[in-house]
Design a protein around this nucleic acid. Structure first.
Length: 335
DNA sequence: GGTCCACAGGAAAGATAGGGTC
DNA sequence: GACCCTATCTTTCCTGTGGACC
């Protein structure tokens, strides 16, 4: 059943992309000056989760590496590397300048100096989930770094620009923008069909894949998660055919897998808050804090809990509605 | 209208952990 | 091993906002 499991992984970058030719062209054009040894234009990729932003960025950068001999690239997930220090560390890692950098004892200004001293080939940095950066001043520092080009990925343009100072915002307004919309059922079906062709030895009809695409509501991560879950179950059962029924059974697990990836990033205290909200449906902050206090041995202060909740809202796990005394929390749709 | 209260979120200080240096 | 430095997390203090109540 499963010939190549890699193509069913969420971070797989295909050799050919489906239905995103315009985005690939726009990004390729922005990066084209690199081939002449010049810095590329800054590119901003916006769109909802599962719309293919990360995949297209990595695909385009990979094609660039095929065409240009002297180019260095690095992918930085700003969700995981949200502090200025971590993000800079990852960027320096891309050019091999972290040999004697110690995570706890090297001032971040020194990291910046090292980056400024970089004199190698053009360097393209993909900053994924850039709106998660704690300190967006790093973008200004990168913008000013000679020979370094940025591809910034975020869900919404307003989320990114809300956190920027005026100086940087005005510079980024001239950057190349690529907007991604959710995939339609047809497009998502094509993507699934290609994955089946590359990675599975199975009989799957297009109608069943269209059913999966519809269930995923335009989110490629969810669609591929459902496909992966169904393929795994069929493999275990020794089946050689993926039917609509099997996909129907795989939908909860496929969705759960995507959600699990987000929940795994929560600390135990954050997870307790998430569980309380999950059980109560919609809850006000006072009640939420009370229940949280009862469930953990050493509860954090209210202020820290507010920080946790703000982070979970940023992660799209929780939705905060209303202001001040009218504030309530509930789980985000689909979680 | 004035007061109280619950809440959000910024700023600064404190606590902690990890690594380097002597 | 003691001390220093730094990043990160947490707490404390504070201000602003808006609903409820008198």
């Amino acid at each position: 059943m499963i010939r190549d499991a890699r193509v069913l992984q969420p971070d797989f970058v295909p050799r050919e992309v489906e239905h995103r030719e315009e985005a690939v062209d726009a990004l390729s054009n922005a990066l084209a000056p690199v081939a002449r040894g010049e810095p590329a234009e800054t590119a901003l990729l916006f769109g909802p989760s599962g719309a293919g932003k990360t995949c297209i960025a990595q695909y385009t950068v990979e094609r660039l590496r095929e065409e240009v001999l002297d180019v260095v690239t690095q992918y930085v997930n700003c969700w995981q590397n949200y502090s200025r220090f971590r993000a800079l560390y990852r960027i320096l890692e891309g050019v091999g300048r972290t040999v004697d950098v110690h995570r706890q004892s090297t001032p971040k200004d020194e990291l910046l100096e090292r980056l400024a001293d970089y004199e190698g080939p053009p360097y393209v940095v993909v900053l994924d989930e850039v709106d998660q950066l704690e300190d967006t001043r790093i973008l200004y520092d990168l913008y000013r770094t000679q020979g370094l080009s940025m591809v910034c990925i975020a869900n919404r343009e307003t989320d990114l620009f809300a956190g920027l100072d005026d100086r940087l915002a005005s510079r980024l307004h001239s950057a190349v923008r690529v907007q991604f919309d959710k995939y339609g059922v047809e497009a998502l079906t094509d993507i699934l069909e290609a994955r089946v062709e590359w990675g599975l030895e199975a009989d799957v009809d297009r109608e069943a894949l269209a059913f999966v695409a519809d269930a995923a509501a335009g989110d490629a991560r969810v669609a591929i998660g459902i496909l992966r879950s169904a393929a795994r179950e069929a493999d275990r059962a020794g089946a050689d055919r993926l039917t609509r029924e099997r996909f129907e059974d795989a939908i909860p697990e496929g969705r759960k897998a995507v959600r699990r990836a987000s929940l795994d990033r929560l600390t135990p205290h954050q997870r307790t808050l998430y569980d309380v909200i999950a059980e109560c449906g919609e809850i006000d902050p006072g009640e939420l804090y009370g229940q949280y206090q009862e469930r953990v041995e050493e509860p954090r202060t209210r202020r820290t809990v507010r920080n946790y909740l703000a982070k979970m809202v940023q992660y799209d796990l929780v939705v905060a509605s209303g202001e001040n005394r009218g504030r309530t929390y509930r789980l985000a749709d689909g979680t």
